[in-house]
Amino acid sequence: MNSLEPMSTPELTLELEAFLHCPTPAPWLDWALQNQTLMLIDHANCEKKAASNAMGLMYRHVAHTDLLTKMSQLAREELLHFEQVVTLMAERGITYERIGPSRYAAGLRDHMRTDKREQALTDSLIVGAIVEARSCERFARLAPLLDAKLGKFYLSLLRSEARHYRDYLTLAAQYTGEDINPRVQHFLAVEKWLIESEDEEFRFHSGVPRKI
């Protein structure tokens, strides 16, 4: 996973399906189609948060040159994506506004180790990889269901998002003295529960809608 070779959308989708423990449930896709304005607002928030998280890692781990380089690149790309989403929203008459986060990221962070600096770094990078992978998987599943312009935009994000998740995993393996797979599988199991369980509010990374 040291580099991203050119891959088609189906190939990327298969890779993500093999990595993640579950696909996005159909009820979430239906929910997203019914809440496209909210989906775009939260998508913009996600891009901004991703850039902020990358910058946070750069500030906390200044001695890791490869991390500084990769996170700097990632932050720039995520901010570009943020600009692109906000521009697309403006074209559709959608105002960017502050909304609360889903429980998704916090649910993953609750399982991070904090006692030792390097363990905290490993877990932060693994969580980053999983969030990017899920985002990429949802772009792929949403794209065929959306209007032509939005669908094309989401497909255009697949390659960079896939590279981000690979970079996070590569860095996690590089900066730890342990096999990261047990931690990766632990977080993927948590992520599966978050994705398949019920949520009251729609967000880009929410679970399925609560049954009434």
Rank of each mutant, 00 (worst) to 15 (best):
G177H: 13
L169W: 08
Y175V: 01
A129G: 09
F139G: 06
K152G: 12
S124L: 07
C136R: 00
L125T: 00
V190R: 04
L150R: 02
A140E: 00
K152I: 08
L171N: 05
R134E: 07
R138Y: 09
D179K: 06
I180C: 10
A172E: 03
K149A: 15
T122R: 07
A133Y: 07
I195A: 06
N181Q: 15
S160Y: 13
A129W: 07
R138I: 05
S197R: 04
A129R: 02
T170S: 05
D147Q: 04
A148E: 15
E137S: 05
R166D: 06
T176I: 09
L194Y: 12
L171Q: 05
K116M: 10
A173W: 08
T170W: 03
D115A: 13
D179Q: 12
A140K: 04
K192H: 15
K192D: 15
L188S: 14
V184C: 02
H164N: 03
L142W: 08
A173C: 06
Y175I: 00
W193A: 15
L155T: 05
F139P: 00
V190K: 06
S160A: 15
L121G: 00
Y165R: 09
C136I: 03
R166M: 06
I180E: 12
R159E: 15
H164G: 04
I195S: 02
E118G: 08
S197P: 00
E178Y: 14
D115G: 07
R159G: 11
S160R: 08
Y154S: 04
E196R: 03
K116W: 14
R141H: 13
K152A: 14
F187K: 08
I130P: 00
A120R: 04
A172L: 01
A143I: 06
G151K: 00
D147M: 04
L145K: 01
A120F: 10
L125I: 01
A129C: 08
A162F: 15
E161A: 12
R163L: 15
L188W: 13
L145V: 00
Q174D: 06
L169Q: 04
L125N: 01
L157R: 11
P144Q: 12
V127E: 12
E191C: 10
A189H: 14
E132H: 09
P144F: 13
R138L: 03
V131R: 05
H186K: 02
H164W: 10
S160I: 12
L158P: 00
Y168S: 08
L158H: 09
I130L: 07
T176N: 11
I195M: 05
A162P: 02
G128A: 07
R159C: 13
R134P: 01
E137Q: 05
R163V: 11
H164Y: 09
H164K: 03
V127C: 11
L121R: 01
A189L: 13
L125K: 00
D167S: 05
A172W: 02
L171A: 08
L194G: 10
L150F: 07
D115L: 11
L171D: 04
S160M: 13
C136N: 04
G177I: 12
E137G: 02
A133N: 06
S156T: 10
F139I: 07
Y154V: 07
F153L: 13
L188M: 14
S160P: 02
C136K: 03
G177F: 14
S135Y: 09
P144L: 10
V131D: 05
L142K: 02
R117L: 09
A162H: 14
D123T: 06
L171R: 03
